[in-house]
């Protein structure tokens, strides 16, 4: 696969390390009420969609940025790639 890195252009997927569902960005506050339940869901309840999937890739053999890659799990078509930090910042701003 080729991943279109926002800064570096098309890069071979071999340069990346895969982590998984981008919902890992939504880490619950460990000090909040009901944190154990929320962390359980965060850790173990993931969707496994046949189709569009937002997922985290780490450009380990590159610029070491974490990316949110939107990939179709049926066709491997990649429709969007964003810096995870930008996504996380936006999420913070939205809250």
């Amino acid at each position: 696969m080729l991943i279109p890195h926002p800064l570096l252009g098309l890069r071979d997927a071999q340069e990346f390390t895969y982590l998984g569902d981008a919902s890992l960005l939504n880490r619950p506050d460990g000090m909040a009420e009901g944190a154990a339940e929320a962390l359980h869901d965060y850790l173990y309840l993931r969707d496994n969609p046949a189709g569009e999937h937002r997922e985290l890739w780490f450009h380990e053999q590159g610029d070491r940025s974490w990316l949110v890659v939107t990939r179709n799990t049926l066709t491997h078509e990649i429709t969007q790639v964003e810096f995870a930090a930008d996504v996380a910042r936006q999420k913070g701003a939205d809250q």
Partner: peptide, 14 residues
């Protein structure tokens, strides 16, 4: 190192 970058970029970019 990968994990620390995850925490930095994905959880606390602020």
């Amino acid at each position: 190192y990968r994990h620390m970058e995850f925490v930095r970029q994905c959880l606390r970019p602020d």
